[in-house]
Amino acid sequence: MTAPISGLTWLLPAGSYAGRARMLLLRSATASRRTWPAVVSGFAEPVFYLLAMGTGLGALVGTLPGPDGRELSYAAFIAPGLLAASAMNGAVFDATFNVFFKLRDSKLYDAMLATPLGPVDIALGEIGWALLRGGLYATGFLSVMAVAGLVTSPWALLALPVALLVAFAFAAVGMAATSFMRSWQDFDFVTLAVLPMFLFGTTFYPLSVYPPVVQVVVECLPLYHAVELMRGLTTGAVHWGMLGHLAYFVVMALVGVVFAARRLHALLLR
């Protein structure tokens, strides 16, 4: 994680990075030994959706055309969408609720700043943890998909690193957004941003159901790009245009990290 970031240091305030972000991972791993139910529920959620929608609703829907026009069972159609959504949900939850608690309630970051750690260590460490958790969920869900016969291409193996990138980008932007929140009430805005994306971001049906104007709006949403990537990889409908979706997340991740670190600096080092 260090190499791409050292190139970014000119964007960040001086003295704000001790190169010890991994110590926050260590801290989170230690803490999570007691909070494992949260980890389990994060894994179970998309599986429940897959069961309810894929098998239940799927019996009524029948098949849908996949990215390359091939007909897919409804479960195979929504599974990659749920994979993308779980990467988003896990990362956003970690980077908003958990970060806000540590920032405002438990003052954990203030305690960390009494050590050589700086805001960049904190931002990278926390985003890194959200990413690890997202990766864990993605691995679990991909395994479920494979066992259920919903993976039809070896390209699906690439869905894991892509899930990590998606989680990174959402965590970085989520953390930056959290730095602007003043109270727990503001978290309704998080739900207001995440839930419609989950429902309308082509997780459950193809983009073609929308009129052209709405299609453009949906194409701007980050989750749409994640769903496109996952659906292409798990069905083997891989094409060069997917690099564009990837680029979307690379930019989102970089902007998020720089923003989050700068905001933390401004909030903590007053």
């Binding site: 803490a31 438990s106 003052k107 203030d110």
Partner: peptide
């Protein structure tokens, strides 16, 4: 430095 802040900011998850 060793810092003891005005309000305890121990890590309550540990």
């Amino acid at each position: 430095l060793g810092v003891v802040p005005q309000l305890d900011n121990l890590d309550i998850e540990l």
